[in-house]
Structure formats: structure tokens, C-alpha cells
Nucleic acid binder design. Structure first.
Lengths: 205, 205
DNA sequence: ATTCTAATTAGATACACATCTAATTAGAAT
DNA sequence: ATTCTAATTAGATGTGTATCTAATTAGAAT
């Protein structure tokens, strides 16, 4: 339904994104015209006009009224207004795009920096078992990407459990040798907290 | 100026008549994004996104905010609304097309059915002189086209003068042998009037 | 200073589509 | 019935443009 609306909007723009068709609409806004007349006005051949009118009619932007042999086309005023009113508040635009998209970039980062069996497939799942062969390939240089990995790493710890520093190091080492850096970053990024040498993960990530 | 506005409107539609760009706007309506993120979300390469963003920025539909190395793009909400409000009433559309167009088709008909020196060049001018070599090639079959020729023919008579039938025939014969048909049609189309065997042209054409 | 990262620009390719000519259809006029 | 007219459909051609890869720029991080 969102998708449907998006496609409708898109085809609407596609139809109007053409000089000849836009002019046709402008002319028809003044008075109804035959194909031949439009061809003369726009200095195009009849088949071309027919082609454009067909596209405009698909979207109900014009109506046709046969008169003898000639087809008189007229602007469908309501259709134009409907579209212009309904659409185009930014909220509307925002609602047009599915919200699955938020994870796409983070998934890409995970895929780039974490190698092994299941890592990218469960970024928010339970912690992976120690026996698995998942490894962090390297430490991302950019803050934003490092944060993505950190969030994943924090997820390897369970909420509500207090870990002594030794165990924290051990768990991190399953994924990357430089446990000191990661441990420091986990604290700095506020994804985990420390007090009296004991570490715990915050409930909300 | 009208022309200017028309071109603006056209390029606006052209920019929005693209699936990727429309999606970009939808995403940016939710939150600002970097080029890389958009590329990941839409599964396109960065240069492609850059290309699209450039086009969107040309029309001020998006703004850019540099943050370190990354460029964060955000939707220009006002611009969107401005365009959607301002345009799109049918009157607006009607005003976009120049009004020279009305004569185009009639000129074409005149050119098709009248041969000779100056005919198509002065459809509304003074009457042509008898000595000229202007001729109506044939009588158009279709009502509408016949009316165009009739209007031109009526213009060969001066307003405010009473012509006896003999003179009417004579004048018509300068352009076409079948003066009876034309004379009858001039009356039938109300372009000229007759009373007691005297003809005169009506002031308003 | 040098290296790396994100973005942009340049250049190439491929697909979409606007327009044309030719052929066909539907309907009027004779 | 036949001929003519206006419109549409079919098919061909050329232009525009979305997308890609490769090269370049601008800026951060080391």
C-alpha cells in the first residue's frame, strides 16, 4: 500500500516530467483540443501527440470526448488538484519509504568488519557462543563505523550480569586480540559501565 | 517569465521523476543521511548517490552539512512545500503556456488550403487586392477547417459596406470558382448577412 | 608528512523513451 | 459501397540519462 502509493507518485512525476506533455496540459487548461490542433500548436506529428495523450489518460489527467471523427481532449481538473493536495507534505513523503532501511548501512558495516559464520545474521540476537569462529577483522577507523561494531560487541554480553575484568577480556578476545582497546571503547561509548573493577552491560542499546 | 516558470516546473518534475531520487527524498524526510548510508540503503554505488544528490541540491530540495569527512544531507522541507503549494492550480497551469498558440492550427489550415503570395501572412489583415494570385485550393471537407477558410474569406470584405450579390460573386471568384457554395456558407456560418439581395459583413469576426 | 576515508568528478555503457514514418482502424461524407 | 479524414498502433531511430568503474579531491587520523 505504501509501495503502491510510492509507485503512483513516481509515475505521476514521470508523466509530467516531459516538456511536450506539460505543454499539452497547459493548453488543455485553457480549452479542449483535438489531436490535430495540439500537433499544430506544438509542431509535432499526430502520433506523437497521441502517445502523450495516452500517457496522460492513464493517470486520468485528461478526458476524451469523441466528436465526429475528431477526439476532443480536456483537462481533468479534479485529478490534478487531488494529487497536488494529497501528496507532498514531508510526513507523507516520509511514510512512503519502508522503514526497513535503517539497518541496511549497519548491516553492511558488520559484514565488512566481522567475518565468520553467523555474525551479520544476528546483530541484535543473543550472544554468540565462545566456540564459534567469529572474528572482528580490524578496528574501524571512523567513529560511526566503530560504534556499529561496538554495539554488536556489547550484545555479546548479557544484560543483568556483572563481569569481572578478566572475563570481559576473555570474551572480547574471542573476537579480537586487542581486548584493552575494545574494553576502553565500550566504556567510552557508554555501552558498558564499570565500577570497582566490575563491568556490566546497560539494558538499553 | 512565464517561460522561466515553465522551465522551473519542468525541471522540478524531471528531478522527481526518478525512483532513486524519490526514495532519497523519502529517506531524508525521516532523518539526515550520509552518501555512504544512502548508498547502502538503496544498494547503489556512492557516485550514483552523489549524482542524484547534486540534482536535488540544484533545486534546493536538500541541504548539505559537512561533518568530518562525511557529508550529511537533509531534506529542505520548505522548498518542497513552496513548490507544492504555489503550483498546480489549473489557472496556474493555464498561465504557463504562452497564448500565441491559438492561431497555430488555423495558420496551418490556411497554409494548407490557400496558395498564393501573402495569404497565410495576413489572416486578419486588410482584404487582399483583386490583382493578387491568391487561390483557395479546394473546399475543406471538415466543418472546422471550412470555418477557418470562411473566416479568412469573410475578411476579404470590408465592414460597413453593402455588396450586391453580383459583386460578392465576383470577389469570391478571385479565390475560388465555386462562388455559389462559398456565398451560401458565408451566410450559413453567420459570417455575412443578406437582406433584399444585399450582403454585408458583420463587424465582429 | 603520510596514509586513509568519504565524496566527488570523469568517462563509459546500457537502457528508457520521445519522436518520426508507415500501416491500420474507426467513423463521416458522398 | 466507397472514399476520405482523424486517430491510433506498430516499428525504427536517436537522444538523454541512470548507473557503473576509475581517477581525483578534500579532509582526518596517525
Amino acid at each position: 500500500m505504501e509501495q503502491q502509493e510510492f509507485q503512483t507518485l513516481l509515475s505521476f512525476f514521470k508523466v509530467l516530467a516531459n516538456e511536450s506533455r506539460l505543454k499539452i496540459l497547459g493548453i488543455l487548461a485553457n480549452r479542449e483540443c483535438s489531436v490535430e490542433e495540439l500537433a499544430a500548436i506544438l509542431k509535432l506529428k499526430e502520433p506523437t501527440i497521441s502517445h502523450h495523450l495516452a500517457k496522460l489518460k492513464e493517470l486520468n489527467l485528461v478526458n476524451m470526448r469523441p466528436d465526429g471523427n475528431t477526439h476532443l481532449y480536456q483537462l481533468n481538473t479534479e485529478a490534478l488538484q487531488d494529487i497536488s493536495k494529497e501528496i507532498f507534505t514531508p510526513d507523507k513523503m516520509a511514510s512512503l519509504v519502508g522503514d526497513v532501511e535503517g539497518e541496511a548501512w549497519e548491516n553492511k558495516v558488520l559484514k565488512n568488519y566481522i567475518e565468520g559464520d553467523g555474525a551479520p545474521r544476528r546483530p541484535e540476537g543473543e550472544r554468540n557462543f565462545s566456540a564459534s569462529s567469529i572474528r572482528i577483522k580490524e578496528i574501524p577507523a571512523s567513529r560511526k563505523k566503530r560504534l556499529v561494531i561496538l554495539k554488536w560487541l556489547a550484545n555479546q554480553f548479557e544484560v543483568g550480569i556483572n563481569y569481572p575484568e578478566l572475563q570481559v577480556n576473555e570474551i572480547i578476545k574471542h573476537y579480537h586480540p586487542d581486548c584493552a582497546t575494545w574494553r576502553r571503547e565500550l566504556i567510552g561509548s557508554q555501552l558498558m559501565h564499570r565500577e570497582n573493577g566490575v563491568y556490566w552491560r546497560l539494558p538499553k542499546v
